[in-house]
Design a protein around this nucleic acid. Sequence first.
RNA 1: GGGGGGUUGGCCGAGUGGUUGAAGGCAACGGUCUUGAAAACCGUAGUAGGGCAACCUACCGGGGGUUCGAAUCCCUCACCCCUCGCCA
Length: 425
Amino acid sequence: MLDLKFIRENAGAVKHAVEVKGVPIDIDELLRIDRELVDLKQRVEAMQAERNANAKLVPRATPEERPALIQRGKDLAEEIKALDPALRAHEDNLRQLLLRVPNIPHASVPVGKDDNDNVELRREGQLPAFEFTPRDQVDLLEGQGWSDFERVARVSGSRSYLLKGEGALLEMAVQMFAMSFLAGRGFTPLSTTALVRPETLVNSGHFPGDEESVYKLEGDELMLAGTAEVPVNSLYAGEQLNADQLPMAFSAISGAFRREAGSAGRDVRGLIRVHEFRKVEQYVICRADEQEGLKWFETLLGNAEAILQALELPYRVVQNCTGDMGAGKVLMYDIETWVPSEQKYRETHSCSYLGDWQARRTGLRYRDETGKLVYAHTLNNTGIATPRILVPLLENHQRADGTIHVPEALRPYLGGKAVLGQPIR
RNA sequence: GGGGGGUUGGCCGAGUGGUUGAAGGCAACGGUCUUGAAAACCGUAGUAGGGCAACCUACCGGGGGUUCGAAUCCCUCACCCCUCGCCA
């Protein structure tokens, strides 16, 4: 959400953001409704002022004066009530529109329509040069007996996964490594819910707009979040923080649930795209200062890169273009990790800076040194997402016999083992 | 799931229908005093919206209602605490 005053005063910049981000919203209509609402409020408030003044006279009035004053009060109450429907309608309309107004992208963001227009910034790490025919993720998993896609599908439907044996331990090792790593960099570890109230999804910016991708639970006013960004963003909702409490940096592990509506037929095999997964998310609340925000952006990006480097995985960093970055975002980089079987990089991390757009929805404010209450800035990035990360991990680290090389960094979480699995066949 | 008690400003905490936007305390800020600080004393001070301004309006967990008038009464929802039951 943007500040309404900002929209009034910078309508041109907002309209530009609407255009380059491809958001279907009419800013002129919003401004019109805003103006009408202000006019309505002025009328109502004038009547309220009179009603209040009138009510104060009643207790001091003589018995003779009293009936007339009470009648005047009744009339005013009725007039005020008569304007109520219009007032509410305008407020609702305005709020619905405001929730859809996109944030202004950073000057560095390339203008583009969709992910085809994203810009590769750099590549890191060596692509593997296999001296044998590499297996893909599913062949490795099944060859090792680490998965059981068929049975879990019977239990939980398509796009489910189940890991067995060392496969299950590997998934947990990756998560433990990421949590420990981030804790070592000063991030507060959180183990949090995915079950959230609907308003948390409005706070985070997923609603309105992204309802299709969220699981709703019949009979309960709760939903399943697709990322720990949602619960963590709302953890301090509505509070007035002190400046010295900031920045707050969290590494939050949770389940993550996505309906994956609209992705029918894509990545149906294996671990790339599943409905329920587990993710360590980095989340930062910092002061409302763009320099500081951008610094944290680099930090979050650097953490993710360090994790991938520790996992000895080749990856590239991509800057998302305006059309692919989401309404709330100021800046967004994806990290894509090399998947040998597909001979391409696949998204494993997504780093976002939202300015105060998210904090404004959530009511994340702090008192600055001048005593003023200001909305904080928020950022998030993946730490590690499983099981997707296991795809490049298994494929890049496979050996000729189908066993898996374990990166040094993971060994402490796998009983010191340097290799997982048995020779296949 | 049953019963009981709660939810007030940054924090604590008064307040059950009429100058209460809200006592008091703590914390904060400004000042006096002091070499400096502390203490003490004096003063300032909620958030949001509208208005050039004086000022006006809204907000005492959320929503709805009663009333000329609601923090105060009623309904409802959420959350917290206690208690009984159930349970990984």
